[in-house]
Simulated assay, not measured.
Amino acid sequence: MSSTRTGSSYTADGYAERHTLPFGVEMRRQLTRGRTRAVFAFMSLLPLILIAAFALGSPEDSGPDGRVNLVDVATTGAFNFALFVFFATTGFFLVIVFALFFGDTVASEAQWGSLRYLLAAPVPRSVLLRRKLLVAFTLSVLSLLTLVAVSLIAGGIAYGWGPVSTPVGLSIATGEMWWRLAAIVGYLVVNQLMVGALAFYLSVRTDAPLAAVGGTVFIVIVSGILGQIDALGDIRNALPTSYNYAWIGMLGDPPDTADMAAGVGWSLAYAAALFALAFWHFHRKDVTS
């Protein structure tokens, strides 16, 4: 077999990097997995479960309790219901979803013993990680969009499409709420990208998917606990979970985006560092499984 020199390395004739582990092939592989189907099924069922819970609940127990929260206005319209779903899932459930898709992607191949065969195909390590990363990101975003779509449709059927009523008494027109909702969803994606980056880094460090996913969730929980300690002062602003609910600023008039900007900055900084560490470690990893 002949070979050609490219830079400082040799490659077999006919080899094309873009044809190794195509995005579509990896996407189809992941879509056929039980955990992927389970995540999308639960994302579709969760809004329906919450609507059923509101329907079965006692009206006397659903009134204001003196605190500003989205539960009090969750059943006043489709957008209010969607916002309540975001509020209920931001702190933990979305963390699990992003951690699962990013943390399982490389570690599962190592656990199955197929990782070394992928690299011997040959699939360059950088290509393998980029494809895995892109598929994990795509599945995470699609799962979030599924949650948004089902929440809006189910909420619209159950509660109508009236203007948004905020917990502090402000009203936002339905037409204006569309771009605010888009900004909120975009922020949630960027905010959870930090979680995905941590899970992805742990995924290349271990052969156990559960360790990568569980380790990510554990770190996020610890960060949330530390965020409640006032003695830490401004140090809490650097914690990964400090700006999880900054998107609530989009419900103000005018929207308050200061915390969202800070959250985006911290999330992108954490994600860039963790992705870089993941690539650096994987290029030096002795893959034996």
Rank of each mutant, 00 (worst) to 15 (best):
M1L: 12
P64R: 03
R284G: 14
G252H: 10
P22D: 12
D230C: 03
A12W: 10
L188Y: 13
L268Y: 15
T75Y: 06
S2I: 15
I157L: 14
T174C: 06
D207F: 07
D72P: 01
G233D: 06
E109I: 06
G214M: 12
T174Y: 09
Y117W: 06
A82H: 04
S165R: 08
Q111R: 10
G77N: 04
L48A: 08
M250R: 04
G7A: 03
I96V: 08
L21F: 14
S58C: 01
S151A: 08
Y245G: 02
A197N: 06
D259N: 15
F42Y: 06
V220M: 11
L129W: 09
M27S: 07
G169I: 14
M1P: 01
A53W: 14
T138R: 02
T90Q: 13
R236S: 01
P124K: 00
I219N: 04
S3M: 07
E176Q: 09
L170C: 05
R29N: 10
L274F: 15
Y201T: 00
V123G: 14
Q192W: 05
D253K: 08
W112F: 15
E26N: 09
G91C: 08
F137Q: 00
A53H: 02
S171V: 15
I235Q: 10
S8M: 11
A16K: 10
L232C: 05
Q30P: 10
P167G: 10
E26D: 12
Y270A: 01
P122D: 14
G66T: 07
M27V: 00
L210D: 09
R67V: 13
P254C: 14
I219A: 15
D104E: 07
A278D: 10
Y117Q: 11
R130W: 13
L45I: 06
L119R: 02
V195H: 00
H283N: 14
L134E: 05
Y245W: 11
V135G: 02
W179I: 13
T89G: 05
W161A: 01
G34I: 11
G186K: 06
